[in-house]
Amino acid sequence: MLIDHPLLGPRDAQEFVILGDASLIDRPDWQAGDAAQRFHDYQHLRDNPAGEHRELWFHEQGDRSWLVVTRNTLTHEVVKVELARDVAIARGRDR
């Protein structure tokens, strides 16, 4: 399996470590009134779609970038690869 790294081109998945659902970027606000419920959902409730899925992969044996890989879980087709840092900033995690 290959992951088309946005900076480095296609690299063997063996260089990477997978974490899972990219929703882990959206860590809740610890001071929210319902923080406990939000953290519970964040930690334990994940989608596991048969089809396109956004996943976090770490290029551990490479440039140490965390990536958001959009992958079809049925065909293994990699549709899109982004730097997770860019995704996080775009989602408002600038602090």
Partner: peptide, 19 residues
């Protein structure tokens, strides 16, 4: 050692990229 480093990179790049 490896896991902590990985998790800290995650925190740095994905959770608090502004730091």
């Amino acid at each position: 050692a490896v896991l902590v480093f990985r998790n800290m990179e995650f925190a740095r790049q994905c959770l608090w990229p502004g730091l």
